[in-house]
Every structure is written in structure tokens, then in C-alpha cells.
Write a protein that binds this DNA or RNA. Structure first.
Lengths: 150, 150
DNA sequence: GCAAGATATTTGCAAATGCAAATACCGTGT
DNA sequence: ACACGGTATTTGCATTTGCAAATATCTTGC
């Protein structure tokens, strides 16, 4: 029944993610942005005009949380929400405002520095290998391989 | 101002961690255990009799959340809390009960299977390399390298 | 053209979370 | 022995979270 926590992948990923999130949150707080808001901003920087459900996929934030978060960001002038009249009237397209874009511009350098610190001591090849492996793990979880009984 | 989200390490780590957590949570729910409870149980399995603050370090759960969580787990009979009379009376040692140990025994196989699925297609060397790199990233974040201005 | 089932988003609500203050205890210097 | 600054845990409180129900819209089959 041995089970080595310190070599258990979910443990290693979780603690790294939590640490990264906590440190980064502290750093962007002065910009008036929470970590979740940054995730939305980064997703919209990646591709603007996303729908709420696309944002949920891209940010790993629950869709109902996002609905409220986007509302808050809208009231702060970072994004706007609109239903395209000519398209499916159920979907809400979220787009960056000039303020939102300026916020992204302000935070991207911080984000870059963060990655640099996280990967200190890594060669470019190692960093790329790590990222590739994380994508593979993510993809492994996507399927329904886990639905089967033990 | 380009910023490729899909190659951004914190993004890759976060989405993998969230996915892992969500899927695993679903799976252990029938055992009457939440993910956070499992983290506490796994930490105590790693080393029993830990104090609340040690548990916080090991599980990445906030200490005040842990205080309440351990209370709940105690009321469910999974752990007990005691202040050692001969030792520092401020500290609370948390220990697994027989019920807690049985729960660990029930969940460890699920956890093992999870790691297997997450690492499907990885050679043993690749898996080990991934884990080593995650430890390195975690260690990189530990210091105060991030406190300095950009 | 309309009923019935799908899909996108919002909202209700209870539980979880995290910061800060409160509490309880320890240790040192005098 | 005692005041004082430090440490461990708990508690107060406001915010965030996520599930499920409600709402609005679409789509398909008839």
C-alpha cells in the first residue's frame, strides 16, 4: 500500500499551479486585476470576441462564474458584451475595450517575467519538452478513458 | 506584443491541474470524500500526525480553510485532532483514524489509475523527467526571485 | 408553422474560500 | 516572575465558487 506523494504527478502539478497562481496574483493585484480576470484578458488577447462558453474552455473557469466575472469586468470597462443581431441571439461575444487592451499590455511583461523565473535553469529544449509533455497529459485527460471502472 | 497563450507555462499547468482535479473529484465523490479531503488524507498517509501548518504546506490549502476542513473530517471520523500535553500546546497534531486509513486504502488505487491515465504514452523516463522538471519549477518559485521589480 | 428537445447564458442558493482579527500559548530578556 | 514580541490555530466576515434551475433562443421533425 505504499504511495509516494512526493512523486505523484497530480500533487506535483497542483502545488506548482497553486504557487504560481498565488505569486502571480500578488503581483498583478496593484493593477486592479485578479488572476481570474487576467485569465479572461489573456484569452481575449489570444482571440478577441470569444463567447462565454469558449472563454470557459480556454480559462478553465466555470461558466456561471464567468458570466458573473465578465459582468464585473464589463462594469469596470475592461470588456464589453454584445449579442450579434444577425447571428445566434443566444451567444454573447466578449471583446476587449481599449482599457482592457491597455491592461493586457501592462501585464504581459509581468507574465513573461514569471515564466522566465519559473523556467530558470531550463534550456530552451527542456522548457519546450516540459510544455509538450503538459499538453500530452492534458490530452490524455480529455478522452473518456477515465470513465471506465477500475 | 505577441503573447502565445497556448505555449505559456502557467496556462498549461493550470488547465492540466484543473482538469485533473475535476475528473478526480467526480471519481472520489462516491467515497464521500472531496478533493481537498483526499489531499489531507494523502498528506497524512505520507506522514501521520502532522500539524495544521504542515498540512497547509503539503496540500497547498490555506491554513484557515484547513482548520475548518479538518474539523469537518474529524466530525466524520476520518481524523482526530489532539494537542500533545507534554509538547507545545499551541500545535494540533492531526492523525488518521482507522476509518481514515480505510478511506486512503480505498482511494489509493483510484489515484494510481489516474496517474497511469494521465501519463499514458509516456515512457518511464519521460514520466520521471516531467516530474523532475515540475519539482524544479516549484523550487524556482520558492525563493524571492519574484519579489524584485521587473 | 409549431411542438419538443437542444444549446447559451444567467441567476438562486448554499458551500467553500481567504484575509484579517481574535485567541491561546510559547520564549526571551530583565 | 512578568511584560512583550512571536507562533499556531481558530473564528468573523465578505467574496467567490459551482451546481442546478430558470430563461432565452435555436433547430429539427412533422
Amino acid at each position: 500500500m505504499s504511495f509516494d506523494l512526493t512523486a505523484y504527478l497530480p500533487y506535483l502539478i497542483n502545488r506548482t499551479g497553486v504557487e504560481l497562481a498565488a505569486a502571480f496574483s500578488r503581483e498583478i493585484a496593484p493593477h486592479g486585476v485578479t488572476l481570474q480576470m487576467w485569465r479572461v484578458l489573456a484569452a481575449l488577447h489570444h482571440r478577441d470576441g470569444l463567447r462565454i462558453s469558449d472563454l470557459a474552455d480556454l480559462t478553465s473557469i466555470d461558466i456561471s462564474t464567468l458570466s458573473r466575472l465578465v459582468g464585473k469586468m464589463e462594469s469596470r470597462g475592461m470588456v464589453n458584451r454584445r449579442r450579434e443581431p444577425d447571428a445566434d441571439a443566444r451567444v454573447v461575444a466578449v471583446a476587449l475595450t481599449p482599457v482592457g487592451r491597455a491592461t493586457v499590455r501592462a501585464i504581459v511583461p509581468v507574465a513573461r517575467r514569471y515564466e522566465t523565473v519559473a523556467l530558470a535553469g531550463f534550456t530552451a529544449e527542456e522548457a519546450a519538452a516540459l510544455k509538450r509533455m503538459l499538453v500530452r497529459v492534458y490530452d490524455n485527460l480529455g478522452g473518456d478513458a477515465l470513465d471506465s471502472a477500475a
